[in-house]
């Protein structure tokens, strides 16, 4: 039973003292540091409107990264998440362009994205194929389907429902989009599932040691299947958020979203080997990348610095994870 209790991620609900030893602490400090630097070097960074922008720019990758976090926690990886989301936008965009009912079109896109998550889950859990290969193959298949459906074109979206997530209301000087709210609700929901339910503990346990998890009676196959399927649904919602942010269903969009979401997860302190990490870290990781992009633009510094710093952060985060792992042995 030691696996189960060890995997229990109760550090997330621990007291204040525990905060400093959580994997989220490092990323949080980095985020605060960048915010401080940009606040001091520019007049515009710490403005309500600009901070709202940073969050709006994080919405798509942030949502895709939720699914990515769950999958990486099971010691998996998902290279197809951006592809699935793009297919969702194209399906919904094309159906509405053909004057189908917008609600049904959106629902169909969500179901389709979920089905692709289910497919990945079946291949990973039943056929025991490596997630890297499964999702790499799926990415190719989905990209091809997307282009076949799109026929080389993009679909401008004018429908109110499809682009609703981009609508904003103002709280003081800050503009809040519905997409931001949806993203935060999803984080809360998945955080609850991962930390407060048996399902979530199983996810961590499987990532720690799949065989041990099976031996203690965790239904490994069913849990893996549920993780990938749920992730597929999240990617579908990501597609809706993408349409809200840019009301144009473009088959060429979001090509790097898979790697961007992995970057966010890793910078957020979640271990690529599974079993360790926190969802809030992923949100912080997403925000770090967005803050860098925004701040470097405000200061007028060459954007290539963003890639450079992001690269350093990724390697640092993984090195940190490895070191702490080795120390425990």
């Amino acid at each position: 039973m030691s696996v189960i209790s060890a995997a229990k991620p109760n550090r997330m609900i621990g007291g204040f003292g525990r905060l400093f030893t959580t994997p989220t602490f490092g990323p949080l400090i980095v985020l605060i540091a960048f915010c401080a630097v940009f606040s001091l070097t520019t007049r515009t960074f710490w403005a309500a409107g600009n901070l709202s922008l940073v969050v709006q720019q994080s919405v798509i990758v942030g949502t895709l990264a939720i699914g990515q976090t769950m999958i990486i926690l099971t010691a998996g990886i998902d290279l197809a998440n951006g592809g699935i989301a793009v297919l969702g936008t194209i399906i919904a965009g094309r159906l509405v362009a053909q004057e189908q009912n917008p609600a049904l079109s959106l629902l169909f896109a969500l179901v389709l994205c979920t089905c692709f998550g289910l497919t990945a889950g079946l291949l990973v859990s039943r056929l025991m194929l490596p997630p890297f290969i499964v999702t790499l193959g799926l990415l190719g298949i989905i990209t091809a389907i997307t282009r076949l459906v799109a026929q080389g074109g993009a679909f401008p979206v004018t429908d109110d429902l499809l682009s609703w997530t981009g609508n904003a209301f103002a709280v003081g000087d800050t503009s809040i989009t519905y997409g931001m709210i949806i993203m935060f609700c999803l984080y809360l929901l998945v955080w609850y599932l991962l930390t407060q339910t048996a399902w979530g503990r199983h996810v961590y346990a499987i990532g720690n040691n799949r065989e041990a998890a099976r031996l203690v009676g965790i239904p490994v196959q069913a849990r893996l299947l549920s993780v990938y399927t749920f992730a597929g649904l999240l990617y579908g919602i990501g597609a809706w958020l993408a349409l809200g942010r840019i009301p144009n269903a473009d088959p060429n969009a979001l090509q790097n979203a898979n790697l961007d979401s992995i970057t966010a997860v890793v910078i957020g302190g979640t271990s690529l080997f599974g079993g360790r990490g926190s969802l809030w870290g992923t949100l912080i990781g997403t925000l770090i990348v967005a803050v860098l992009r925004n701040g470097l633009t405000l200061t007028g510094i060459d954007p290539l610095w963003q890639d450079l710093v992001t690269g350093i952060l990724v390697i640092s985060a993984v090195a940190l994870d490895q070191m702490s792992r080795r120390r425990q042995r």
């Binding site: 060890a6 040691n209 425990q328 042995r329």
Partner: peptide, 16 residues
């Protein structure tokens, strides 16, 4: 991305 199953069964608690 490394994807081999972790070997240790023991504690995988906080980084310390």
């Amino acid at each position: 991305f490394g994807n081999e199953p972790p070997i240790q069964i023991g504690s995988s608690r906080t980084p310390g």
